[in-house]
Design a protein around this nucleic acid. Sequence first.
DNA 1: CTGTTAGCGCATTCAC
DNA 2: GTGAATGCGCTAACAG
Lengths: 351, 351
Amino acid sequence: MAQQLTIKQIAALAGVSAGTVDRVLHNRGKVSQEALAAVQKVLDGQSYKYNLHTSAVAFKKTKKSLKILVSIPSSEKGEYWDLIREGIEEGFSEYGDFDIESQFVFFDQFDSLSCRDAFDSIAEAPCSAVVVGTTFVDETRYLCERLNKRHVPYVFVDGGIEETTPVATYKANQISCGRLLARLMDGLTPQGKELVLMVPRRTGTQMSNNSAIRKAAFKDYFPENGKLRVIHEAQFSTVGHEAVVSELKSFLGEHPNVGGIAVAISSSYLISDALRDAGITGLVVGGFDVTDGNARCVREGTLDFLINQHPERQGFYAVESILHYLLYGTPDSTLPELLPIDIVFKENLRP
Amino acid sequence: MAQQLTIKQIAALAGVSAGTVDRVLHNRGKVSQEALAAVQKVLDGQSYKYNLHTSAVAFKKTKKSLKILVSIPSSEKGEYWDLIREGIEEGFSEYGDFDIESQFVFFDQFDSLSCRDAFDSIAEAPCSAVVVGTTFVDETRYLCERLNKRHVPYVFVDGGIEETTPVATYKANQISCGRLLARLMDGLTPQGKELVLMVPRRTGTQMSNNSAIRKAAFKDYFPENGKLRVIHEAQFSTVGHEAVVSELKSFLGEHPNVGGIAVAISSSYLISDALRDAGITGLVVGGFDVTDGNARCVREGTLDFLINQHPERQGFYAVESILHYLLYGTPDSTLPELLPIDIVFKENLRP
DNA sequence: CTGTTAGCGCATTCAC
DNA sequence: GTGAATGCGCTAACAG
C-alpha cells in the first residue's frame, strides 16, 4: 500500500524545508539548482498527489474569496443547460471550503445578440475565472480574446471552440454520439424500414456545432458499416406543439415506411409528445440526454432510449478544473475532458 | 450562493465553542440541553456539509493509522473482481491523507472452502473495518456475526446478504440488469428469431445470487411485456475453451433459429471467442461489464453490447463510506447504494 | 458538560 | 533563495 506522500515528508527526505518543496511542486518563486535536484530526486519514483481540499484550507486564509463567473444559456428547470448549471452548483458546494463567490449570467441560446450582451458584461468584470457555455462561435472567440488579455482563465462546457485557449473543455465526443445513435436506431428498427433524422428548424442562427457533427456522424454510419437503409432528414418547429404534431403527421403520411425517428437534440420529448398526440405508435424513437421531459417520455414508453452526455458532470468537472488551475497553475490532468456516453432505456432509467 | 458553514461559524452564532459544535454534529460526548438547542437553532435552515478530507487532517494526528481489511474473490487482471479491487485502491489513494493500512485477503469465487479460510483469517484480525465481496451467503453471514460481536463495521460490494448489518451495500439493481438485458436482446434481434440465455455450469456450488436474479428477471421480461419469443437456456463450461466451442456448435446446430445469445455473467468474452473460433457469425451477443476481455470482443465486433455495473465505482464508494462511518459514526447518505447501469456498444466504448 | 489547546497538511509571508 | 512562523477547519485530549 503506497502511503500518501506529504510535503513535509518530501522536505525531510530532500533535506530542505516545506516551503521549498511547495515552490518546486507548484512552480512558484525561485529555487536553487541544488534544492530543485534534491526534491526531484525524492519525487523520482513516488508521486505527489494534489489535494484540493487540504490546499483550500490553507489558501483560504489569505486569499479571502474567489469570484467565478458563469455564462451559459438559460434553460427550463431539468432541461439540458439546467443540468449543466446543477453540476456547476454541485461543484461550488463540493468545494465549499473555498470562499467562492459565483455569479451566473444567462443568455438565450437561440439569440446571438443576447449572448453578446452577456459576454460583454463579463469580459471586463473583475473575477478570478470564467465558465463558458459554448454556443456561438464568434461571440465566444471574442470573449476569449478579451479574457486572454486580462489573463483570466476560462473553461468550456458542452463543446470546444477552435483558436481559443481554455484551461479545459468538458464535452462528449459528438462523433461517437452520432454513430451511437445510428447504431441503436439501426439495430432496434426492423430491417427494410426507413429512418428519419429530426433536426430543429433553425431560428435565424446557424445550427449548433454539436448538432451538425452528430448529424454528419449519424449519416456516415450507414455507408461506413455497409448498411443499406433509407435515411430521411426532416426539420421540426421548436416553438408550437401543434405545429410539430401536424408536421409529423404529414411527413409520416408521405413516408409510410418509416420505422424509426432519431432526434439529434436534447429536447427529444417534443417529438415523443407530438407522436403521442398524433396517435402514432410503433415507431422506434431515440434522443439525447436525461432531461426531465425526456425521462418522462421514457417512463411513459413514448421514447425508447436516450444517449446521455452527462451534462451535470461537465459542469462539475468545469468547477473542479478551474479551482485546480487557480491553485496550482496547471490544468488537472486526472479529469477526462471527454465524458462517457451512456445509453438509457426505461429499464435502466434511474428513479 | 450559499456559502459553506464552518464549525467555527456555527459556534460563534450559537454562542458555544467549536468543541461543543463538533460534539453535537457527530453525536460524540455529552452536551447539555441548552447547548444542543442553541446549535440546532443555528443549523435550522442551513446545512452543515461534512468534509472527509479536512476531517482527515485533524483525525490523523492522534489515531495514527486505520487498518482496513478487504476480502474479495481473486480475479485475472482487468476482470470483474479486479475492477472492484481497482476501485478500492483508488479509494485508498483518493483518501491518501488518511493513514490507511490496507490488507487484501483473496479467495476463490468458485470454492466456498477457500472463502471460509479467508473469512476465518480476518474474523478475529485486529482492524478498523472490513470490505467484503459477497459471494457465499452462509460464509458471509457467519463472518458478519463475528464482526458484529467485535463491533467492527463492514461494507459489501457486488451484492447484499439478508440478515446482516453492513454500513452500506454497493451493487447494481440486478432485476433492472436482467430486464435491460432482455429489452436489448429483444430489440436488437429480429422478430421471429429465438434467444438463448447462457449461464455457466456450476462447479460444485450453487449459482451466485446475482446471476439467479438476473436470470429470473430476464425470463420474466418477455411475458410481462407481451413479447412472444422463444427463450432457451443453456449452460457452458467455464474451464476449457474447446469445450465451449463444441458445446456452442452442437447447441446452435440443434437450434438453427437462434438469433441472439445473452450471457448473464461478466466473462461474456468466453462465449464471443468461442463463437468466433466456431466460425459462427450473425448472432446478437450481449454480456455484462466492461472487463478487458469483454472490451476486446466489443472492439473486435464479436460482442454487440455490454451492460456495465460499474464495479470500480462500487469499490470506490465502499472505501468512501467506510471512512465516513469511521469518522462520523453514520453511513454517508449522499452515496447512492444502487449504482447506475450503463450500456456500452462499440461506438461508446472508451478507448 | 464545556472551553481551551495543540497539531494534522498546506500556502503564504517575512525575516534572513 | 530559503526556513520559520502563522493560521485555515477540524478533532482529540485535557483541565476545569
